[in-house]
Amino acid sequence: MKTLKKLKPVDTGSLVDKVEVRLLSFFKDNNLKPGDAIPKELEFAESLGVSRTVVREALLRLRTLGLIDSRKHKGMTLKHPDIINNFARILDPTLLGENTLKQLFELRLILEMGMADFLFEHKTKKDMDELEEIVAAEEATDSGKIRFTLDKEVAFHGKLYQMSNNTTLQKFQDLLLPVFNYVYQEDTKSTDLDDYHFSGGRFVSHRMLFQNLKVGTPDTFRNAMRRHLEPHFDHTFSKKESKKKGLG
C-alpha cells in the first residue's frame, strides 16, 4: 500500500484573529459600554459560524487585555481596560528590543517637557514643601559629581508627575523610569557627565528646577527642564545622526 504524506495541522490562528476583530466591531456597533453584558460563547459561535473553541480563544485574548470581565453565574461583561497594567506585563527592559527601548527613552523626555503647564496649574504649598524636602535630602548625600541615578529620579521626578494631577501619567512614569535608567546606563557607560559641556554653561540641578517652579513660569521651567535633560537629548540626537551617516 502506498504511503501517504500526513496532513499538516490547520492553522486556526488567523481565524481567531478574525473573530477577535469581529467581536470588537460588535461591541462598537452596538455601542456597548463597560458594565454591559455580552452574549455567551455559543451565541457568538453560531452567529459567526465558527467553533466555540475559536470564540473562546478570541474572548480569552480580550479578557487578558482587560476588556472583558467573566464571573460565575453572571456571565461576561465589558470593563474598563487597565492600559497601564497591560504595559507593565511586557515593559521589562531586558525583554524589549533596542529600538523599542530607545523609543520609550524618548517618550519619557517628551513627557518631562510637556508637564510644565500642569505643574504650575496644580502645585500647592504642601507639594512645594515636599519637593524641597526631596531636594534637601538629595543634596545631603551629594558627592559633588553630576549623576542621573534611578533613586534620585524616582524621588524628584516622581513628585513632579504626582503634582501633574494625572493618575495615568503617574503610573506610566513608574513604568518608564526603569527603562530610562536602563537605556542611559547601557549607552553612556563610558561618558563622564562632569566633562560634558552644557550649552548654558552649567548643569541645571533639581534644586534649580525647584526654584524655577517656585518663582518662574511654565515657559522658563520648560527651558530649565530641557537644560537639565540636555545630556540625554544630545546623546539621543547624536546617536541618530551617527546612524544617518552610517557610523552607528
Rank of each mutant, 00 (worst) to 15 (best):
R52P: 07
K126A: 10
D69E: 15
L107G: 00
L213A: 00
S190P: 05
M1Q: 13
D151Y: 09
H157Q: 11
G216P: 01
L101F: 10
E138M: 11
Q185F: 12
V215I: 13
D187W: 11
G66N: 02
L104R: 00
M208S: 04
K123P: 01
R61K: 15
Q162C: 06
L175I: 15
A224F: 03
G200W: 12
D194P: 05
N181H: 15
F44L: 02
S242V: 02
L111C: 10
K8Q: 15
A137F: 09
F156G: 02
L23Y: 01
A116I: 00
K243I: 01
D69H: 11
F27G: 01
L109K: 03
A45Y: 05
F105H: 03
A37I: 09
T191K: 11
K5H: 08
D194M: 12
N166G: 03
S51W: 09
L213H: 05
F120D: 00
N31F: 14
K33L: 12
F148Q: 04
T94M: 05
Y184S: 11
K40L: 14
Y161L: 13
H80L: 12
F26T: 01
L177I: 15
T167M: 14
L95N: 09
L91V: 10
I146D: 00
F198T: 06
R63D: 07
L78T: 02
L175Q: 10
N86E: 04
K145A: 07
K33R: 13
K239G: 02
G35N: 09
L169C: 06
F210M: 04
T124S: 07
Q103N: 14
H197A: 13
V16M: 04
H157M: 11
Y161V: 05
T12R: 14
F105W: 04
Q211S: 09
E106N: 04
S199E: 14
V19E: 00
G144C: 04
A116T: 06
D195K: 14
S238C: 05
K28G: 02
S190Y: 11
F105R: 00
S51D: 14
E98Y: 10
L247A: 07
E43I: 08
R207I: 02
E139F: 04
D219C: 02
M1L: 12
K239Q: 15
T64P: 01
N212K: 11
G200F: 10
L59R: 02
A37Q: 15
E121G: 04
F105N: 00
T236C: 12
K125M: 10
K18G: 09
F87E: 00
R108G: 00
H232I: 08
A88F: 06
